[in-house]
Simulated scan of single mutants.
Amino acid sequence: MSGVPVRQSSMTIGAAVPSLVRWRLSSDADLVFRTLATMGAHHARELARELGLPCRRVDGALAELRTAGAATPRPSGNRHGPIWQARPPVEVVATLQRRQLRLVDQDEQVRSHHAAVTAVADRQAVIGDGVRYLPTRVLTRRRLAELMDAERSEHLVINTEQSFDAASAKAGAPLGRRVVERGVRIRALGLPPADQDLHVDAELFDQPFFSYREAPAMPMKLLVIDRRIALFPADPADLERGYLEISQPGVVRGLVLLFEHHWANATDPREHGVQDIVLTDRERELIALLARGHTDVSAAAQMRVSARLITKMMRALMDRAGVENRFQLGLALGAARHMPSPAVAEKEEQ
């Protein structure tokens, strides 16, 4: 249409927008950033109208984004005020990482490991038997699989990596799922990941016996099986040199106390993230129809259900996504790659 400016988005349509809430920005700032990143530059009042938010909340969110270096204003030459443009999400995340994520000092991590082991060992007059050396990671994974298959009550984990290699991730995920499916409780501690995404098997988060927390520092890499057996790297600077398996009760108790201390001071990162949205087959069909331009009535006809049911389905989706209107739902679904377009147009029933 002539005379209508073309909005330039800072990203490809359908690409995922990382959550800024994870980097301690407000949910309003995250929502406004998603809108700018997927829909292109907007005036503040346009954002307020499309998102269904009060102007004061949009203004606050834009000020927060400007301070964080996530969005910048440029003069518009009219009474509506400046036009706000999002920086590319990859650049924004990189900036926030540098500001807020403290990457682990590997030398400090080695010192922390030795200090933790020494402190536990020093509390025992005699270590005695109950120490087994597993000389390689392959043997360690094999032994860990045996122990987890026999596990009955609780599995404690401290991870000191901020990213995982493919082999470790592939080996660990099935073991964890099998354990929680048997009703064994898993509690896992980790460092904030270097790529801002949770490095935990997503399926585990749906399990009632799984809990995960993060903290900016961890004392050592550790696994404890049923509070009876503990495993930790023989050399924290080189995991390929294998692990020590400890079954001496006093040492294991000390390592459990170490875990509990850090667990009490860690937090669940999902409290600062975007809730995942899992769609049923019928919901995916509905979203696809609405994204192609159908109204509630025409979508209902295609799906052979009532328009009232379509409205109820959309309301339920908005409640699950924690959003207030269909525009916000479209942004959430687009970010989760559930639809090819970043917005579900709000259409009146015909």
Rank of each mutant, 00 (worst) to 15 (best):
L62I: 04
I13W: 09
G52N: 10
P174A: 01
E348P: 08
A332M: 14
D122C: 01
E245Q: 14
E283R: 04
R7W: 07
A166H: 12
G128T: 05
L258M: 11
Q106F: 05
L204S: 06
P269L: 08
A15C: 07
R142Q: 13
H42K: 13
I225Q: 03
D226W: 06
A63W: 06
L156G: 00
E324W: 07
L279D: 01
W84M: 05
A188Y: 09
V278N: 10
L20A: 07
D30H: 13
V184I: 14
P18W: 00
L65Q: 00
S2E: 14
P236Q: 05
A29F: 06
R56K: 14
A335E: 08
E271D: 13
V157H: 10
R182W: 08
A29E: 02
A86P: 02
L222N: 00
L317K: 03
V104S: 13
L223F: 14
L25K: 01
H43V: 08
G330E: 01
D30E: 06
P174K: 01
V305D: 00
G77Y: 05
L331A: 04
A119G: 07
G293N: 11
P249H: 03
A173N: 10
R227H: 11
I287W: 03
R123T: 14
Q106N: 06
R57T: 11
A234Y: 03
I158T: 10
A29V: 05
T118L: 13
L204P: 01
F259H: 03
M318G: 08
R292P: 09
R284A: 15
A188Q: 14
A125E: 14
F210D: 00
A94M: 09
L331H: 03
S9L: 03
L191C: 08
Q8M: 11
M318S: 11
A230D: 08
D165K: 06
Q302V: 12
G130E: 06
I277L: 15
T160W: 01
Q248S: 12
V278M: 08
